[in-house]
Structure formats: C-alpha cells, structure tokens
C-alpha cells in the first residue's frame, strides 16, 4: 500500500508541505502514487480474475448444480450487504470531499461511518457463513461432518438428479468457490478497514486538509475497488439460482 505519502507529506515549520526526498514537487509525488495505486488495482483485478475464470469454467461445466447450490444462498442478506457496501462507498467519497473542503471533523465522521458499514458487511457475512455451517454446506473436510447437499423440493431434486447425477458433488465445487471468493473479498474488506483505522488516526492528528489528502484518495480507490468486486460477486453467486424459485 501507499505508505510513503502517508508520512512523507509532512508540513514543516514554515507551514508548506514538502515532498518526500525522491520527488521534486508535491504534484509529482501525488501523480506517482496515484499511478501506483491504479497499477496495484490492476494486479488485484488479475488476482480476482483467476478466481472468476475458475468460477466461469465450472459454472459452464455444471450449470444445474450451480443453479441449485446458488438457490440456497440468502438473497435477502446478500442484497442488504450490497446496499451496505454501496453506502460505504458513498461515505468514503464524502470523507475525501470533507478533506477537499477542509472540514476536518467531517473526515473523522465519514471515515467512522465507512468503517462501521464495512464491519456491518462483515457481520452479515458471518451470519451467512454460520447458516452454511449449520446446513453443512461446507466443502471438503473443514467440518468434522462431511459436506451435505440435498434439494428440499423433491421435484427439483429429481430434475437436478436427471440432469446431473453427481449434482451434490458439483454443488460442493460451487460452495468451495463461494467460500474462497467471498473469503478473499472479506479479507480485502478487513485490510481496508484496518487502513481506514490508520487514516482515522492520522486525521485526528490533523494530517489531512484540502492541500494534502492523497492517502484518503488512494484508500478510496481501494475501497471502491473492493466494492466493485462484490457488485460482481453478488449476482454470480446469489442470483444464479433465482429463476428456480
């Protein structure tokens, strides 16, 4: 992450900000870190890209099992979480706006709200994970009990059985990808919240104002990126089986 400008954009006694030693101007420093952040996001896209590729291939191989498995996810919680994340993107943007208009208290308020919404998301995710654990929809040998998947509706089960005799097995792959994809995403959320906490600390010390708020902006890019990943995950994982209801 961009720790460099965090500490280096310091104000000296004369009240002017000086760039870190390797830069000539503050503008050059800002441009450089912005480019660096976008490049970092490119690597993130490739990282998630690998997962999405695996998902697309298995969904193509086992469409019915995936649809059946997807229908057991709770669209309500997923939808609420989508809304929560979109709101958190708004509060993140407002935190940056507060810096731009020199409203230092606003930075603190909106950073806190963003963290709160991020934690809300994780809380809801935990509820959903718990449900999956109770239903034994946990693949592999993570639990002591083996993975178990059965459609409640007998008709649907018969149809699925006819289309894909091994569908519980293939549903296991769906849940493997579900846990890995949402787990990697949640890890990104946790890292994001930790960075926000550090920024909150610096904001309290009055590090950021309309002249210098680059770390806020860079973290904002990261936060929006993590949101966008969820915007793709939600329909791929939750809405896939919606048509079976």
């Amino acid at each position: 992450m961009n720790s460099t400008p965090l500490v280096d954009g310091h104000a000296h006694g004369d009240g002017h900000r000086h760039p870190a030693h390797q830069f000539e101007t503050m503008e050059q420093q800002k441009e450089t870190s912005t480019l660096g952040m976008w490049l970092f996001l490119v690597t993130e896209i490739m990282f998630f890209g690998g997962l999405f590729t695996a998902y697309v291939i298995y969904r193509h191989m086992y469409p019915d099992a995936f649809a059946a498995a997807s229908s057991t996810l709770d669209v309500k919680w997923g939808g609420i979480n989508t809304a929560v994340l979109i709101c958190s993107s708004l509060t993140m943007a407002l935190a940056i706006r507060s810096a731009q208009v020199n409203w230092r208290k606003g930075i603190l308020i909106f950073l806190s709200l963003t963290m709160l919404l991020g934690l809300t998301f994780l809380g809801i995710k935990a509820i959903e994970y718990r449900a999956k654990f109770v239903e034994r929809h946990v693949p592999g040998d993570v639990l002591n009990e083996p993975f178990h998947f059965e459609l409640e509706n007998h008709h649907e089960a018969a149809v699925a059985q006819a289309q894909d005799p091994l569908y519980p097995r293939h549903a296991e792959i769906f849940f493997a990808l579900y846990f890995i994809m949402t787990g990697v995403h949640a890890t990104h959320m946790i890292i994001g919240i930790l960075i926000l906490a550090v920024l909150w600390h610096f904001s309290r010390k009055g590090k950021f104002d309309s002249e210098y708020y680059n770390p806020l902006e860079m973290t904002g890019l990261y936060w929006h990126f993590v949101d966008i990943v969820w915007i793709f995950l939600f329909p791929l994982l939750y809405l896939l089986g919606a048509h079976t209801h």
């Binding site: 998630f48 690998g50 695996a54 191989m61 693949p139 592999g140 493997a176 990697v184």
Partner: peptide, 28 residues
C-alpha cells in the same frame, strides 16, 4: 497475481480437499 491465486487454490485444495482441481470430486 494469477499464479498467486492459483497457488492459493492449490493450498486450499490440499489442506481441505475441496475438489477444485480433483477429478474425483468433479474438478478439472
């Protein structure tokens, strides 16, 4: 990043036997 996620998947598969790359479990 692609090798990173690939290796991560191998690690998870090996650790928890979840069948992403295991043909016996429908993996490829």
């Amino acid at each position: 990043p692609v090798i990173a996620i690939t290796i991560l998947l191998v690690g998870i598969e090996r650790g928890f036997h979840i069948g992403i790359f295991d043909p016996r479990l429908g993996g490829d």
